[in-house]
Design a binder for these strands. Structure first.
Lengths: 234, 234
DNA sequence: CGTATTCTTGACTTATATCAATGTCGGTGG
DNA sequence: CCACCGACATTGATATAAGTCAAGAATACG
């Protein structure tokens, strides 16, 4: 039951430096779980009983405000750990990770966190770097939200997705999981209407090719120019 | 020279669980530095040769965009560690911490980070929790920026400052360091004009008392109401 | 006291949200 | 297999929050 094949995770950077025994120990405490499209791994506000690693698929982490508005805080990619509230000194989960595509996650009970950190100090360093990178991304997005208008912001968001989940195709680079205009709106702090308008404009210029929950970027360089376009340029 | 009196830091939560020897070891590698008002501890983009702890005073951490726009990413309060780029897997500093008030910081060479973490595992856990909390705050602000209009956003920012740096006075709670309208604008992603207008309105309602680089909150509860006011309420 | 910041306030402009209607894709079941 | 339905997307018209432009007043400091 708790026997997860080490080969499943061996290639992940997080585990690269662990030896066979350490890895076995780690996996012996874990469970595998399949998450179908549209289902949440856990819900915002629930007590944090487990922490996770995404093996396969794609999760969008949302937070809802008191009045029901939703934003996408980040996207979880294969190899990312998530839901480790313990490290954030929380007892409940701060957001809801929903499967945008069929996903496969490894789960550990929260109690294992301290033990694992103790036994595998490298894990702590790694986890800290992970959080550090997320903090940086959050600050970057914060700066974008504060200083940029919608179009450059959207361009930045798309370029980030391309970097994190880009898949080369003949006509360009595709965002390799289903993503709606609404999703993009919730990532950039705007409305799906505005996203739709901008994407239409980009498509007319041949920068991207859209589709129902699909996006293919043809001209990354041009998007980069739009992303850096300052509002002072008028 | 490198002899910093342990009593200076003994009261800080970060060091509470260390014994006398560990603390001495930690401080033996450190240096004390005074930072006058307006001066930066280090500059964004510089190689990260040291990491820091704020003992006394107040720092505002800014990031500048390519086109010169500035935002305040966060405020550093006494007892906070900052500039530990090493943990964020960076070689340069991501922002510039400037003294809003006369400040006193402890500096360690970056090389000490690994050694200290090794010797004092508790420090790693603590540091991780610190970053975790910052990540949460960043996500909260991101959500506010995306879903709220300026007035509630400003209310949230002021309430946060009150909680982190509030000092009780007879007429209310004062933000205990010099903060300009411009600063508030850079924290909330708006302009000093808009901040000024809103603060004037609040003052007319008796919620706050403003001043040159000063702010005193009289009615925290009313601010809380404004902060939660959804834009759907019209 | 004068000079430099910081702050206030008004008039105008604009980006983007909101409101509203219609179009299109793709899966499901008849 | 085709028709239908619901989810997703497009597009136009209008409204508005907040930015920009501009001028002046208040405060602190040397």
């Amino acid at each position: 039951m708790a026997g997860i094949d080490p080969s499943l995770v061996r290639s992940l950077p997080l585990f690269q430096k662990l030896n066979e025994d350490e890895l076995k120990n780690l996996l012996s405490r874990a469970m595998l779980r399949r998450v179908p499209v549209g289902e949440a791994v856990f819900e915002q506000g629930q007590p944090a009983t487990q922490f996770f690693l995404l093996l396969h698929g794609r999760l969008k982490v949302t937070q809802v405000t008191a009045d029901g508005q939703q934003i996408i805080v980040r996207v979880v990619h294969p190899g990312d750990i998530f839901g480790f509230a313990k490290a954030l000194q929380r007892t409940d989960y701060p957001g809801t990770p929903t499967a945008a595509a069929e996903s496969l996650v490894i789960c550990w009970p929260t109690e294992s966190w301290d033990i694992l950190i103790e036994q595998i100090p490298h894990l702590a360093v790694n986890a800290m770097q992970t959080i550090g990178q997320r903090l940086q991304e959050a600050h970057t997005r914060l700066r974008e939200m504060a200083t940029e208008e919608v179009e450059p912001r959207l361009a930045h968001a798309v370029l980030r997705l391309i970097k994190q989940a880009g898949k080369k195709e003949s006509a360009g680079i595709r965002i390799d999981f289903p993503i709606s205009r609404q999703d993009l709106a919730e990532m950039t702090g705007t409305t799906l209407h505005t996203v739709s308008r901008i994407l239409s404009a980009w498509e007319a210029q041949g920068l991207v090719i859209g589709g129902r929950r699909k996006l293919l970027v043809c001209d990354t360089a041009a998007l980069g120019v739009i992303a850096e376009k300052s509002s002072a340029s008028k």
